[in-house]
């Protein structure tokens, strides 16, 4: 057991951190979603983004990269391609951004846009679709991610990923969800801690009030718990670990969002305040892959398969 990054992992994280650090300053334009083609290009040219990696990076490294990239206010898809993509797409050429959805995929989907790709999970298989401009329409949303919706989706035109079970794709999607909640939670917490150190009321920083400190301490605990569960899930590749990480993450996302917004006061609800880039991502992620209850049931199935099977037999009509 070793909680430190390997030398290679630390080098990768450090290199991405250096790129990210150059762009961490508050965004000058306030919008619900911020794109940053320059940053994205720099990360891509250095081989840090994408489902295929010339450097041989796997889902763990994908997670570490997503942890760094997610600290930016910009919507840069790093987790889905870097974690799920590297785990299940093997040598398939995949464009970015990579979206993922359950069939029939008729609702708004994060990062679904022309020029990118989508993984569609059906009941029986997993398919990869190169998404063209005419296939999708943009969905205006306040959740700090770009959302798109299929104008028409012909699942039959997508490439079936041989040997990839729907459950495997969902497992890695859970790791993506946990990763994104972990990093958005971390960024929201850091922004809030800085804010409550500066904001003064009653002649003192509001961060000096115990009522504020305790709630942020609770948030910090949740964020650290999510981070370690996610790292374990990415490392082990075990279904139970992924379900536990997503359960903890979706269970915590609402509280992290609520408290971080609360301590910013009304300012936290405005586009002037960069908090919304992370806080609203947390909200969007709460419902992904059918949400918390679904991940919890999946975790129960993984942890106690016999008990769940016994229950299924007990309620099945004769």
């Amino acid at each position: 057991m070793d909680f430190d990054l390997t030398e290679d992992q630390a080098l990768i994280a450090s290199a991405v951190r250096q790129i990210v650090a150059r762009h961490l300053a508050d965004p000058t334009s306030a919008d619900f979603v911020l794109n940053a083609p320059v940053v994205e290009r720099e990360l891509t040219e250095n081989g840090f983004l994408g489902a295929t990696s010339e450097m041989g990076l796997g889902p763990v490294e994908g997670l570490l990269i997503a942890e760094e990239v997610g600290r930016l206010p910009f919507a840069i898809e790093a987790a889905t391609s870097g974690i799920l993509g590297r785990a299940i797409l093997d040598a398939h050429p995949v464009r970015r951004p990579l979206a993922v959805a359950l069939a029939p995929a008729d609702g708004p989907i994060r990062y679904l846009q022309g020029g990118g790709a989508a993984v569609i999970i059906t009941d029986d298989d997993v398919r990869l679709l190169q998404v063209e401009e005419q296939d999708v329409e943009r969905v205006p949303a306040v959740f700090a991610y770009p959302f798109g919706r299929f104008r028409r989706l012909n699942v039959d035109k997508a490439v079936v990923l041989e040997g990839v079970a729907p459950e495997s794709a969902k497992q890695w999607w859970r790791v993506v969800i946990a990763a994104e909640i972990g990093v958005a939670g971390r960024a929201a917490l850091e922004a809030t801690v800085e804010f409550v150190k500066q904001r003064r009321q009653f002649n003192r920083a509001i961060g000096s009030f115990q009522a504020v400190q305790h709630r942020l301490a609770h948030v910090a605990t949740l964020v650290q718990g999510i981070e370690w569960l996610t790292r374990r899930a990415a490392t082990s590749g075990a279904a139970a670990d992924a379900a536990l990480a997503a359960t903890m993450a979706q269970q915590s996302a609402g509280l992290i969002h609520a408290d971080c917004t609360q301590f910013h006061g009304a300012y936290g609800t405005t586009l002037d305040c960069p908090l919304h880039f992370w806080a609203y991502r947390l909200r969007a992620l709460r419902g992904e892959l059918k949400g918390l209850s679904h991940q919890s049931v999946e975790a129960a199935r993984s942890l106690w398969p016999d008990a769940v099977a016994k229950q299924s037999r007990a309620v099945r009509p004769a």
Binding site: A243, Q251, S293, V297, R301
Partner: peptide, 23 residues
């Protein structure tokens, strides 16, 4: 499970508690 009472609400609560224990 022995009583046929490990239904989805129970599964959800048990899993959420277990996730926190693993964290």
């Amino acid at each position: 499970a022995g009583r046929g009472q490990f239904d989805e609400p129970a599964q959800i609560r048990a899993a959420q508690a277990m996730a926190a224990c693993h964290a």
